[in-house]
């Protein structure tokens, strides 16, 4: 009996921690701006317009429904890129509490990525609107596909963020490198082009990019309701590998955080 009460309380406490940190993120990042949610949709949409003009109207890429094609990749990309760009500052920005209280510090990146994930989920209705306006419909397979892909992307994003956030405390240049890294990754990932357009001799590079299978899957799922199991498994593997590396690095460095902040 006592054990279950304890478990309940621990779970409640964990949930409360996440809630409090997520609220804090909302407040600190958007300064409670009313448009907070709209920004998370507006930003990728603005990108989509730019790419549409550049690649459809000017360069005329042979992809039909290009606007829809773009946002199906841009929304999940935005989740990844928002979380990873925020990660170098994540422990630095919480120095004050890290130096005073001993608590599991990885709760901070965890809540951050959860927060960006919620924004992504809230943006899915926008994709549905675009689908209907192109005469398409959501598929039943989303019910299985979306949770699995979210899990894979969460692990990958959390892992990479933990690595960057932890190491950046000791090696502050990482912050600049992260900006460059995200920029390059964007062009190396089939977000605004289709993986089929890549010459086959570069295929290996494409496969080595952990985001490629994720984005391909998201797009396949949103556009056609297809689930490509082999690349989903590849995504999950990437997710687990990066999560493991992230946790190991965090474990190794976390006890020094208070010393360097």
């Amino acid at each position: 009996m006592k054990v279950t009460v304890n478990m309940d309380k621990r779970l409640q406490h964990f949930i409360d921690l996440i809630i409090v940190f997520t609220q804090k993120d909302l407040k600190v990042r958007y300064k409670n701006s009313f448009l907070g949610y709209l920004w998370s949709v507006g930003h990728p949409l603005a990108f989509a317009i730019v790419f549409y003009v550049a690649f459809k109207l000017i360069m005329r890429v042979p992809i039909e429904n290009y606007a829809l094609f773009l946002i199906c990749g841009l929304f999940p990309w935005q989740w990844f890129s928002n979380s990873v760009s925020a990660s170098p500052m994540i422990f630095l920005g919480n120095a004050q509490i890290i130096k005073k209280i001993n608590f599991p510090r990885n709760i901070i990146p965890f809540a951050l990525i959860l927060h960006d994930m919620l924004h992504f989920i809230l943006a899915v209705p926008v994709i549905i609107v675009f689908l209907y306006s192109s005469g398409l419909k959501p598929h039943l397979s989303w019910i299985i596909g979306i949770p699995i892909l979210i899990l894979a992307q969460f692990c990958l994003t959390y892992g990479i963020s933990l690595i960057i956030a932890s190491i950046n405390l000791f090696f502050r240049d990482l912050e600049r490198l992260t900006v460059i890294f995200i920029n390059i990754l964007f062009y190396a990932t089939p977000v605004f082009y289709s993986e089929t357009m890549i010459p086959s001799r570069y295929e290996l590079f494409l496969k080595l990019n952990p985001l490629t299978p994720l984005i391909i899957n998201w797009r396949g799922l949103f556009l056609k309701g297809i689930i490509l199991w082999d690349s989903i498994i590849l995504s999950l593997c990437y997710g687990i590998i990066f999560l493991a590396i992230g946790l190991v690095i965090y474990k190794k460095l976390s006890w020094r955080f208070a010393e360097v902040l």
Binding site: H13, K24, I97, F103
Partner: peptide, 9 residues
């Protein structure tokens, strides 16, 4: 924030 960090709900 401080309260949840020291372990209270």
């Amino acid at each position: 924030l401080k309260g949840v960090l020291i372990g209270l709900t």
